[in-house]
Design a protein around this nucleic acid. Structure first.
Length: 422
RNA sequence: GUGGGCGUAGCUCAGCUGGUAGAGCACUCGGUUGUGGUCCGAGAUGUCGCGGGUUCGAGCCCCGUCGUUCACCCCA
């Protein structure tokens, strides 16, 4: 009887050895700067009440209107796999009253996110993101710090070819004033039905259209940056000043559009040119009204999300991923039943003292076991057979050059710790 | 959701204008008694994504379907 194979769901990316080590490396590099800036881990559910996203992220966004994994649980509740991280953090902050203490609340998170999009290079239905949020303080210095933390993460990966784009969406008055003129401008354009519909939902989205005819049509459209209120303009200038002081290179992109509705003020995006169409490796911004929308007090926040999958692709494109050869310290080859039992005991003791130890399983021929040892990348090998058990002495073989040393079994741990300088 | 490319052994692929499949790598065993990486020898492995159709005959042609990939929309 042969059963049909089951495939992974469409559009998921999985990392198997040895690539999984590179993935883990990227994630750690991206998280490290947040930790060193005093941000603390928040471990959140991957599914939430659907209302959290429809209300928080915005009904008008593609993310909410057509990309969510939504289902009914057994109690008849509408549940959605999280498509982004900020809303969940805000929910937890409000629910657990974290905003009642020291502000800003500074947290980081990492994990899987889900969007039911058509997969493509660098775009998966389940993707991995590292993010931070700083909630409760309106200070352009905080905006600059958040951007600097993301930038540090990418620098940790050794990336050089990415660029940081920033802009400001201003405050409510700034956006309202701009919207009037932008709508008037768009009205004069001859748009196809789908594009006109998009303009209706959010006119800013037209700036993001990749079609050349739309690019040129929007070339002279009024820019939000030119409509910033004096306060917003001063705030944005301060952010730029701080970034410059920290030596962080950026370009101002007044046509930048973010896909989520809650952004206000400073927004930014990290773009890598070598990844194909999905070039954004991270992005974020300030959100003034989100917390209130979700039933909390009126506090502003700022944060980012960095795409771990895409950051890995970028690191691969720039050849900055360190070679992560898997190695262990010792490989034990037991010959015979007594030796097998002894090797388990020995390995346990060695591992307890910090020596990475593997065992050859399956009663293979010695030659085959040696090949396995070689492939495992183990630095040393011992064969544990009848004579070794009887005499209490083993030959410790160094795989790099084949040199062997006689060692008493009782002193093996000490000898290994010495030669491996543990 | 829309459009293009692709789908042959574990992996990378070959297979000419249709005649029922091959290479390299990897894997297993061996090259005399218990020691890897090189070399030599032997061996196992495919319902040619799946389902229909055309044909005397299809991996090669047609239709559908699934998957994958790239792009659009959108986004990390």
């Amino acid at each position: 009887m042969k059963f049909e194979k089951i495939q992974a769901p469409k559009g998921v990316r999985e990392y198997l050895p040895p690539e999984s080590q590179s993935f883990e490396w990227v994630r750690e590099q991206l998280i490290a700067p947040a930790k060193s800036a005093g941000y603390q881990l928040m471990e959140l559910p991957v599914f939430e009440d659907t209302n959290l996203f429809s209300r928080g992220v915005g009904e008008s966004t593609d993310v909410v209107s057509k990309e969510m994994y939504t289902f009914e649980d057994r109690g008849g509740r509408s549940i959605t796999l999280r498509p982004e991280g900020t809303a969940g953090v805000m929910r937890a902050v409000i629910e657990q009253n974290l905003d009642r203490g020291q502000l800003p609340v500074k947290v980081w998170y990492s994990g899987q996110f889900f969007r039911a999009e058509r997969p493509q290079a660098g775009r998966y239905r389940q993707f991995y993101q590292v993010g931070i949020e700083a909630i409760g303080t309106e200070d352009p210095a905080l905006d600059a710090e958040v951007i600097a933390i993301a930038d540090r993460g990418f620098k940790n990966l050794g990336l050089k070819n990415y660029r940081l784009e920033i802009t400001s969406l201003g405050d409510a008055q700034s956006r309202a004033a701009h919207r009037v003129d932008l709508l008037a401008y768009i009205e004069a354009l001859d748009l196809d039905e789908a594009t006109a519909a998009r303009a209706q939902i959010n006119p800013l989205r037209l700036f993001d259209d990749k079609r050349p005819e739309m690019q040129s049509a929007m070339a002279k459209a009024p820019l939000l940056l030119d409509y910033l209120s004096p306060e917003s303009a001063a705030n944005f200038a301060a952010v730029q000043k701080y970034l410059t002081a920290m030596g962080i290179a950026f370009v101002i992109n007044p046509r930048m559009v973010r896909g989520l509705d809650y952004y206000t003020g400073t927004t930014f995006e990290f773009v890598h040119p070598d990844l194909g169409a999905q070039s954004g490796i991270g992005g974020g911004g300030r959100y003034d009204g989100l917390m209130e929308t979700l039933g909390g007090q009126s506090l502003s926040g700022i944060g980012f999300g960095l795409g771990v999958d895409r950051a890995l692709l970028a690191a691969i494109a720039e050849s900055t991923v360190p070679s992560q050869e898997f190695t262990s310290d010792l490989f034990i080859i037991p010959l015979g039943d007594d030796a097998k039992e002894q090797s388990l005991v020995l390995a346990q003791n060695l591992r307890n003292s910090g020596i990475q130890t593997e065992i050859a399983f399956g009663d293979r021929a010695l030659k085959g076991a040696m090949k396995a040892a070689d492939k495992s990348g183990a630095r040393y090998v011992i064969v544990l057979g009848e004579s070794e058990l009887k005499e209490g002495v083993i030959e410790l073989k160094r795989m790099s050059d084949g040199v062997t040393t006689s060692v008493k079994i009782g002193q093996l741990q000490e000898e290994l710790r010495r030669t491996l300088s543990l």
